[in-house]
Amino acid sequence: MIDLDDTDRALLRMLAQDATQGAGALGRALGLSQPSAWRRIRRLEEAGVIRGRRIEVDRPALGFGVTVFLGLKLATKGRVSIEDFERAVTAIPEVQVVQHVLGLFDYRLRVVARDLTDFERILRRRIMTLPGVGQVEANVLLSEERRPGPLG
C-alpha cells in the first residue's frame, strides 16, 4: 500500500471528477509545477492506485435507454465450469459488467438494452441460454448518482 498525502488525495479527487485534465492544469489548481504534478500522477499509476483513465459514455444518447441488474444463480455448479459460463457471458455485448459475488446469487450482471422489449430478447435468447443458468432476478435501474468513492 502506498502512503498518500493530502496533495495526492486532492489530485485523485480532481482526476475522479475529470480524468482528461492535464498535469499542467492539475498542478496549477494544486499549487504544483507541471513536472511535479506529472511525477505524482506517474507514481500513483506505477503503484496501481490509478489503473487507467476512461471515458463515460451517455448510454441513452447511443440508444440504450434501459439498464438492468441481474442476479444470477447457476443451476448446476458441478456440471458446468465457471470458466465456461464466464467466457460465454462476457461474449454478450449488452452485458457491460460481470461480477462473481458471494451471497444469494453467484453472479451480478449489468445489462444495457434499447428498451424493455430489447431487454426481454437479450434475456430469453442470450442470457437464459448460457451454460448452467438457473435462477435469475432482474432489477431495472431508475436513476443513478455518481459517487467518487473514498478519496477523502
Rank of each mutant, 00 (worst) to 15 (best):
M1A: 12
D3G: 06
D3V: 11
D3E: 15
D3P: 01
L4S: 04
L4D: 01
D5P: 05
R9W: 04
A10D: 13
A10R: 13
L12H: 02
R13I: 01
M14Y: 02
L15A: 06
A16K: 04
Q17R: 14
Q17C: 01
D18A: 09
D18H: 04
D18Q: 07
A19E: 08
A19N: 12
A19H: 08
T20P: 00
Q21C: 06
G24K: 13
A25R: 13
A25S: 13
A29N: 09
L30G: 10
L32H: 07
R39C: 02
R42A: 13
R43Q: 13
E46F: 02
A47D: 07
G48R: 12
R51L: 04
R53P: 01
R53M: 07
R54C: 09
V57T: 09
V57I: 15
R59N: 08
A61T: 00
G63W: 00
G65H: 14
F69C: 06
L70N: 12
G71R: 08
G71C: 08
L72Y: 04
L74C: 07
T76N: 15
T76R: 15
T76Y: 11
K77V: 05
G78T: 14
R79P: 00
S81A: 09
S81T: 15
I82K: 15
D84M: 03
F85G: 03
F85D: 03
A88Y: 02
T90Q: 14
T90F: 01
A91L: 06
I92Y: 03
I92V: 14
P93E: 11
P93W: 05
P93G: 10
E94V: 00
V95C: 10
Q96G: 11
V97I: 15
H100Q: 11
G103P: 03
F105N: 11
F105G: 01
D106R: 05
Y107C: 10
R108G: 06
L109K: 05
V112L: 09
A113N: 06
A113T: 07
R114H: 12
D115K: 10
D118S: 15
E120L: 13
L123M: 13
L123N: 12
R124M: 12
R125Q: 15
R125L: 12
T129L: 04
P131K: 03
G132V: 03
G134A: 08
Q135D: 14
Q135V: 11
A138D: 04
L141S: 14
L141D: 13
S143I: 04
E144S: 14
E144C: 05
E144K: 11
R146Q: 12
R147W: 05
P148C: 00
P150W: 00
P150M: 03
G152K: 04
